[in-house]
Amino acid sequence: GETKIIYHLDGQETPYLVKLPLPAERVTLADFKGVLQRPSYKFFFKSMDDDFGVVKEEISDDNAKLPCFNGRVVSWLVSA
């Protein structure tokens, strides 16, 4: 499998796309960081919350699996 991750960088209009050679349910924050090489950023991901619906959730645990929608991951990188 392959996972497409779209990421928005510090408010830039056009998002970036990276592809990881892993199925979406196995991709972790560490996998994503390894491709990006951007150490001083906070990582937020499109996520579903039972109370609020669609939210941007910050993930900082490198072992955390990334939230996935239709085989895609959507993220926002914010300068720390």
Rank of each mutant, 00 (worst) to 15 (best):
G1L: 11
G1W: 09
G1Y: 11
E2S: 11
T3M: 03
I5R: 02
I5W: 04
I5M: 01
I6C: 07
I6M: 06
Y7C: 04
Y7T: 02
H8R: 08
H8L: 06
L9E: 06
L9R: 03
L9W: 02
D10A: 06
D10M: 01
D10V: 02
D10W: 01
G11N: 13
G11H: 07
Q12M: 13
Q12I: 13
Q12V: 12
Q12D: 15
E13D: 11
E13V: 07
T14S: 11
P15M: 02
P15F: 01
P15R: 08
Y16Q: 14
Y16N: 10
Y16T: 10
L17I: 15
L17K: 08
V18Q: 01
K19V: 15
K19F: 10
L20T: 01
L20A: 00
L20H: 01
P21H: 10
P21R: 05
L22F: 06
P23K: 03
P23S: 07
P23Y: 06
A24P: 14
A24Y: 08
E25C: 12
R26P: 03
R26A: 13
R26M: 09
R26W: 02
V27N: 02
T28E: 00
L29D: 00
L29N: 01
A30E: 01
A30T: 02
D31S: 05
D31H: 15
D31P: 08
D31T: 09
F32P: 03
F32T: 05
K33W: 06
G34Q: 14
G34N: 15
G34F: 06
V35T: 10
R38L: 11
R38K: 14
R38E: 14
R38V: 12
P39M: 13
S40K: 11
S40Y: 14
S40R: 09
Y41C: 09
Y41L: 04
K42D: 00
K42I: 01
K42R: 14
F43M: 09
F43G: 02
F43D: 04
F44L: 08
F44R: 02
F44W: 09
F44A: 05
K46I: 10
K46V: 07
S47C: 15
S47L: 13
S47Y: 11
M48V: 14
M48F: 11
M48P: 13
D49E: 12
D49W: 07
D49C: 13
D49F: 06
D51K: 14
D51T: 14
D51S: 13
F52K: 15
F52V: 13
G53C: 14
G53W: 07
G53K: 15
G53D: 14
G53F: 08
V54E: 14
V54Y: 11
V54T: 10
K56V: 14
K56I: 13
K56S: 06
E58A: 04
E58I: 08
E58H: 09
I59T: 01
S60Y: 08
S60H: 14
S60N: 11
D62I: 02
D62N: 09
D62K: 00
D62W: 00
D62Y: 05
D62H: 00
N63A: 10
N63E: 13
N63D: 10
N63M: 07
N63T: 11
N63Q: 11
K65E: 01
L66Y: 06
L66E: 06
L66V: 01
P67V: 02
P67D: 04
C68G: 03
C68N: 11
C68P: 02
F69N: 08
F69A: 05
F69Q: 07
N70A: 05
N70G: 10
N70Q: 08
G71T: 00
G71L: 06
G71F: 02
R72K: 14
R72G: 07
R72F: 15
R72Q: 15
R72W: 14
V74R: 07
V74G: 03
V74I: 13
S75V: 10
S75E: 02
W76G: 04
W76D: 00
W76S: 01
L77Y: 00
L77T: 09
L77D: 07
L77W: 00
L77H: 06
L77P: 00
V78G: 05
V78E: 12
V78L: 08
S79A: 10
S79V: 03
S79I: 04
A80F: 11
A80E: 14
A80K: 14
